[in-house]
Design a protein around this nucleic acid. Structure first.
Length: 544
RNA sequence: GCGCCCGUAGCUCAGUGGAUAGAGCGCUGCCCUCCGGAGGCAGAAGUCGCAGGUUCGAAUCCUGCCGGGCGCGCCA
């Protein structure tokens, strides 16, 4: 049955699908097992009969009856009973034997549990990419947490992942940055459109900038220092990149010219009023875009096309870009350019990250700022810590504005979801310490299926929850939805609390209960919480 | 004006075709002879923005409208 795999729910789904195939003569697309909304609808519920009904031309409930019979035959004693319900659901009530075997299988997988089979697909995820003209802000912090967590989840889902930060070290912004440093070095105010943060004067000091250094030199040196600082802030936030890709490389290697030549060859380029244009309107954009300005300079857009071409040439199956909300007007033209280059539109995903509002008791707040007018990621971490910052930033989907409640995030109590989850983990650790290593190992090597006592509701609920991890990871990866893991981790913690309330673990044997089963379940709940938190980049403490 | 995103409980949000729509916060009430009370249980609270449509079935898909956010440079 399911004992040889680390995804017992999937195996069960396979049994139902096989039965549906026999009945319908053809595979049923979209059939799945889901957790029913109410406990009296069983442990798992299949929508297969409703999908099968049109194929076999029978009422869904009749199909469900026949499917139920076959599933019952296939599962034998692991199934308690099936019920047909509602519009044609097949509800499965599983026997305790199934729960024991399933838990045993999950526990036997140890650290591999929740790690999905390799897909061979190579992903390049580009995120943060904040201009290297200032420290990392809270908004960029959300990009960092989210992008990094997505990468962790993609890896768990079996994909190969490369993390990349695109450094805009060219162009007018950078020059203005250099001019601002130079002004400070001369004891002057930066230009009106320059960078006015306190860190600029600090950079001027650290560079030992003489009054006659050029803005371009100062810009280059300033960018290098900023990249180092950004890197350090991100490292502190547990975010590491495989590569910082400099825009400068594209200019130096003639990559922009060759991208432009390729576009020209493919017939998408024209000249107008001394500028070179890309005809993006033919590919879904609302206006054509300039690639090279009339002054001969390439636009940021041209460099970005060259960058994406470079990524594609490196042989990735999937490019994921995470951009700020202020860049969403840019999506159409980059997609158009991507298609102009002849690439599969689905291979490039452009995701937009919405803004972060810092909130305290319902009011927008101004934090005390280390760097003048900018609220930096470091300021936030100093205030609420890395774990709370990451967890809170990951609780929401990327396309919704985030209200981050600082008061709640600071709170070290059960009201704070990150503490609630970490507390559950620490509490299980404490229980297992009390049991002792040797006793825990003994429990893990016991054959749970040989036991006979009835499981209680909260034990069964926790087993089911723990078994959901592989599917949760798969869905989070597919939908680019790290926030699902925050919900899941909280659910596990909650189900553990119910289990713990109802069932004594250490000393269960004295009451005649199955202590091996309970210890194994506690171990597995702890692993699953730790795994979920790891995918979020949040620590799972043994003690608090 | 055009484009994209959002509109679900008092608040912040989950829920990408299925059953009586969920969680956290807040609110009300209850539970500490028990492995961590940094805990648990129960309750009140919803015209899923509005109106049509598709479907056996719609918070979910389509169309229109209303409200909010963001974007619409030979800036990056």
């Amino acid at each position: 049955m399911t004992g040889t795999t680390a995804d017992p729910i999937r195996s069960l789904e396979g049994v139902v699908s096989a039965a549906a195939l026999e009945l319908g003569g053809t595979p049923v697309a979209g059939a799945r097992l889901e957790r029913p909304p109410r406990r009296d609808f069983g442990d798992f519920s299949s929508n297969a009969p409703m999908l099968l009904a049109p194929i076999v031309r029978e009422p869904p409930r009749e199909v469900a009856e026949r499917l139920g019979q076959r599933v019952a035959d296939a599962l034998g004693p692991e199934l308690e009973r099936v019920e047909v319900a509602g519009p044609g659901f097949l509800n499965l009530f599983l026997a305790d034997a199934w729960f024991r075997e399933a838990l045993g299988a999950a526990a036997a997988a140890e650290d591999a549990y929740g790690r999905l089979p390799a897909t061979g697909l190579r992903h390049l995820v580009e995120f943060v990419s904040a201009n290297p003209t200032g420290p990392i802000t809270v908004a960029s912090g959300r990009h960092a947490a989210w992008g990094d967590s997505l990468c962790r989840i993609l890896e768990a889902a079996g994909h190969h992942v490369q993390r990349e930060y695109y450094v805009n070290d060219e162009g007018s912004q950078v020059l203005r940055f250099g001019e601002s440093i130079r002004a400070r070095a001369r004891g002057q105010e930066p230009p009106d459109d320059g960078y006015r943060g306190a860190y600029v004067a600090d950079l001027a000091d650290r560079l030992g900038a003489g009054a006659n250094a050029s803005a371009a030199e100062l810009a280059e040196a300033g960018v290098e220092l900023m990249v180092e600082e950004i890197c350090a802030s991100l490292e502190r936030f547990r975010v590491r990149f495989d590569r910082f890709f400099r825009e400068h490389e594209l200019h130096r290697e003639g990559a922009i010219e060759s991208a432009l030549a390729l576009l020209r060859e493919r017939g998408h380029v024209y000249e107008h009023e001394d500028a070179v244009w890309l005809r993006t309107t033919e590919l879904g954009d609302d206006k054509d875009r300039v690639l090279r300005r009339s002054d001969g300079e390439y636009t940021y857009f041209a460099a970005d096309i060259a960058y994406h071409l470079d990524k594609a040439d490196r042989g990735f199956d999937r490019l994921v870009d995470l951009w700020g909300a202020d860049h969403h007007g840019y999506v159409g033209r980059v997609q158009a350019a991507w298609r102009a280059l002849g690439h599969d539109p689905d291979a490039l995903e452009l995701l937009i990250m919405q803004l972060v509002n810092l909130v305290e008791r319902g009011q927008r707040v101004q934090m005390s700022k280390r760097q003048g007018e900018i609220v930096t990621l470091d300021d936030l971490i100093d205030d609420i810590g890395v774990d709370a910052a990451r967890f809170f930033m990951l609780q929401r989907s990327h396309d919704t504005t985030l209200d981050l409640d600082l008061a709640l995030a600071r709170e070290q109590s059960q009201d704070n979801p990150v503490y609630y989850v970490q507390y559950a983990h620490a509490r299980i650790a404490s229980i297992l310490r009390k049991a002792g290593d040797a006793r825990v190992r003994e429990a893990l090597s016991a054959d749970l299926s040989a036991r006979g006592d009835a499981l209680n509701t909260s034990e069964r609920d926790l087993v089911k929850r723990v078994l959901e991890l592989p599917a949760e990871i798969a869905i989070a990866a597919e939908r680019r939805a790290p926030h699902r893991l925050t919900t899941y981790a909280h659910d596990v913690a909650q189900d553990f609390s119910a289990f713990y309330r109802d069932s004594r673990v250490v000393g269960a044997a004295e009451d005649g209960d199955d202590e091996d089963f309970r210890l194994t379940l506690a171990v597995q709940a702890k692993r699953v919480i730790a795994r979920s938190l790891d995918l979020l980049g949040v620590e799972a403490p043994e003690r608090m």
